[in-house]
Design a protein around this nucleic acid. Structure first.
Lengths: 117, 117
DNA sequence: CCCGTACTACGATGCCTATCGTACGAGTCG
DNA sequence: CGACTCGTACGATAGGCATCGTAGTACGGG
């Protein structure tokens, strides 16, 4: 699913061709991860892990970022002490045109709905 | 997540408002269920459970159909001994315009790709 | 009424995963 | 160097889930 790491401190990512729709959907089916992706899309630029104020511990956050990276949804690189996260929009749009936008739009619509019973 | 059953032999479905994006994505993140949905979409009409020739036992198939129903992706009703399955296209399109088509298109594109390493 | 077909229910199993806490490694800045 | 920040690694835990097999229920037809 992922490329081997050539040096320490660099992170294995799937190539574009290795990205699987099922993996992307699974990654996005977790509320915490969907939230991360929505924020990345809204801001439109790379964000450090610590920028996100998630209601989970840091180890759990690390886990979610890894799932997103290994599924091909985000790309991560170290920038000094920070680890920057960016949406792989080009790859996703190339593989699945319109999907990411449809997903983000769906998430936006749901976010506006009454949280409900 | 689902309405209570009023009589035996009728199946609890979530109302349109109860359908959650995360649930839909989770349902579709399983290859077997994605396959079922793709077939339903391709045929465009209701299909009985037994119409599908899935590489799993019938108990497992029952499980997958239930997940799809409880997430709001399909609707199921008994018709004699058969249980018919239909895509809830109106509800999904109403909640998340364009999402279902984008997902089906993405699945089609992936299906054409070399299965790969 | 009896049988066959269609699907379910239940229990078991093994794997995956979301979560945490603690201890650690890598960089940066004084 | 030393301390601080950012993020990781590892182990534990608890719950979810895909799968199976077996036994059972509901319906329709002879």
């Amino acid at each position: 699913m992922t490329r081997p790491a050539v040096s320490s401190r660099d992170l294995p990512h799937p190539t574009r061709e290795e990205i699987r729709l099922e993996g992307v959907l699974h990654a996005l089916s977790d509320p915490m991860r969907l939230r991360i992706v929505r924020e990345l899309a809204a801001v439109g630029e790379e964000l450090s892990c610590s920028h996100f104020d998630l209601p989970v511990t840091k180890s759990t956050a690390t886990h979610h970022f890894r799932v997103l990276r290994e599924s091909g949804v985000i790309q991560q690189i170290y920038r000094g002490t920070a680890k920057m996260n960016g949406l792989r929009r080009d790859d996703l749009d190339g593989l699945f045109p319109g999907l990411l936008d449809a997903l983000l739009d769906a998430a936006d619509r749901q976010a506006v709905r009454p949280k409900s019973a």
